[in-house]
């Protein structure tokens, strides 16, 4: 759904950082709690980049698990649902360690000039 908007934003940033060079790989980091469907993001990426300087550029998605750390008992738990309770002691005094990432991690610039 909003994956198209995300891909447009990714393409804009990548073009800025490309410094006129061809980019053949983009790696993004998506947290488990971000509502992104990988298939849908990859499909949108093809749509968005088609006919542009980024056509054929590979999008690689790193899925980051959602992890909380319990302030009460110290245990780390990996969550499926955003129910912020320690799976060890049920405490709600937890800190979200990862799972909300929505980052462009890196781009591969080939050195070939495209603009």
């Amino acid at each position: 759904m909003h994956e198209l908007s995300l891909c447009q934003a990714i393409a804009d940033t990548v073009s800025e950082r490309a410094e006129g060079q061809r980019v053949d790989r983009v790696e993004v980091r998506i947290g488990h709690f971000r509502q992104v469907v990988p298939d849908s993001l990859l499909f949108s990426w093809e749509l968005i980049t088609d006919g542009t300087e980024l056509a054929g550029c590979e999008l690689v998605i790193d899925h980051v698990p959602a992890v909380i750390s319990c302030q009460a008992c110290g245990q780390e738990s990996t969550l499926d649902m955003p129910i912020l309770l320690c799976t060890g002691c049920q405490s709600s005094d937890v800190r979200l360690v990862s799972g909300e990432e929505l980052l462009i991690a890196s781009i591969d610039r080939t050195g070939e000039r495209v603009s």
Binding site: L6, A9, I10, D12, T13, V14, R17, D24, R25, V28, L102, L103, I104, A105, S106, I107, D108, R109, T110, G111
Partner: peptide
């Protein structure tokens, strides 16, 4: 992460939020 691969391609770390704009 950051660095050159054998082909001369340069991997550049970006670490920018996709929704930054």
């Amino acid at each position: 992460h950051t660095g050159y691969t054998q082909t001369g391609t340069e991997r550049v770390s970006v670490l920018e939020n996709i929704l930054a704009e």
